[in-house]
Amino acid sequence: MIQTIHIGRLLRETVASPYRNLVTRPTGAAIRGRIQEALAQSDCALALLDFSGIELLDLSCADEVVAKLLLADAERGGRCVVLRGLREDQHEAIEHVLTHHHLAIAVVAPGTDDEGPWLLGWVTADARAAFACICRRGALTADALAAALEWSGARVEEALGALALHRLVRTDGDLYLPLSLA
């Protein structure tokens, strides 16, 4: 099950004004608190944070909303988080803060959920390739992924370990599953 959280709506409710700009640390921290509250009340496996109502996202807010949400892994109940509706400059801000913290997150464009997500942040080239392969082919075992990418077992294990650590794939027994938004 997927829970969609509209950041623009949270912003309007939090700062009680018509602003569409997500700026300043206190605002970002308040928004993150609202997201964590929503996640605590939900039993969804995946949370989709929709930024499509946001005009400007500054670095402080990117850090407070996205990076700190990922850092507080326990408080999101181990859920996978995917971002949607980001503009190019917002990608940049999020990429910058996630790289700083050695974190990564999956992103989809609005209306293109079926194209599958891509990754923003601190991810090795191998982990990116493994992520793309799983998104393209669906659930795979490590052996199947190694065969598909023509990699050694150790190389695949390392890439999958990084993806699992950042909750960029789901696991079910031996299988690694893509973050399905369908």
Binding site: T24, R25, D58, E88, D89, E92
Partner: peptide, 20 residues
């Protein structure tokens, strides 16, 4: 065009330094 938003981000960060 995207420079406009980067500019606003820079301005926001510079102003926040005062507050913080």
């Amino acid at each position: 065009m995207k420079a406009t938003l980067r500019f606003s981000m820079a301005l926001s960060e510079a102003c926040q330094n005062i507050v913080e």
